[in-house]
Amino acid sequence: MTAHAVVAGVRRRARLTTLVLAVLAAALLLLALSVGTAVVSLPDVLSTLAGQGSRATDYIVLERRLPRAMTALLVGAAFGLSGAVLQSLLGNPLASPDVIGISAGAGASAVTAIVVFGAAGPPVALAALLGALLTAALMYVLAWRDGVTGYRLVLVGIGLAAILLSVTSYFMTRSQVTSAQDALVWLTGSLNESGLDELVPLAIALTILVPATAISARALDLLAFGDDTASGLGVEVRRTRLALLVCAVALAGTATAAAGPIAFVALLSAPIGRRLARDGGPALLPSALTGAVIVAAADFAAQHAPGLPQVPVGVLTGAIGAPYLLFLLARMNRGGHGG
């Protein structure tokens, strides 16, 4: 087999993976638009999307269901992309916004806004985003020692996450039952309240962040070969790493702002995406699509699965993600190293 055939084979596989995941995401979107208290048939959903719907289907599909379904997909994609960038950048499968304190920072900040300032809606989202960015900046400063290594950043992040979780707990225990209830739903990650107010800022943020991440995607791939090799191939290592870190944190921050820290989506999506694409790279697009599929599927199940009460989507992703985290930790310990 020639090198060309091998490389072409790998590319074909990556493209096929991307295509299959995209079709799956689109199918889930249509399903979410169709199923509910009033079932809209698939042809009606399609004609409504094409602008040919009746007033009833316009209301149900476009106004009631589309914002939530789109938010689910975009939030999932943002978490998936963020996790893929962080894991590849820091060379550690634990490096995910929910493990290294980014989500905890967003959570502490949002809970403070809800409980202390009685905020609701967009101000909570803004507080969450600011919390994520501030936590990341603090983490970066604390982990800095003539440059930042992945392992130090992960350890510092886990430490920060612990501190921030206790800040959250403190405010929760000091608060009124009703605002604690709101805060708890937010912290679990829920799409129950999702409407255009969540979708529009998220979509705007992603139109900036996704291309910004894509520009550095190939440099990210080379960073996995070590700083010297990447630098020798022409990557500006420090600048690229900082830019990607900012993008990944902002992605996780905006997703959290829109729907709360939906547990473990960022942690899970990247390894699945990488395993499906199998090209030895960071598999950003497959990971983002995997995240979108996970959140859309989990939210659909949370709403419609028979026997399940209407639970926040984060409960379901948490139930899938937590065993995976345990598996990761167990496997690492056996390997005798932390990364």
């Binding site: 091998v6 490389v7 790998v10 070969f225 070590g226 090799t229 090209d279 030895g280």
Partner: peptide, 10 residues
């Protein structure tokens, strides 16, 4: 160092 699972051609 090479990332896990990468092939020679890649």
């Amino acid at each position: 160092a090479a990332p896990e699972g990468i092939t020679v051609a890649d």
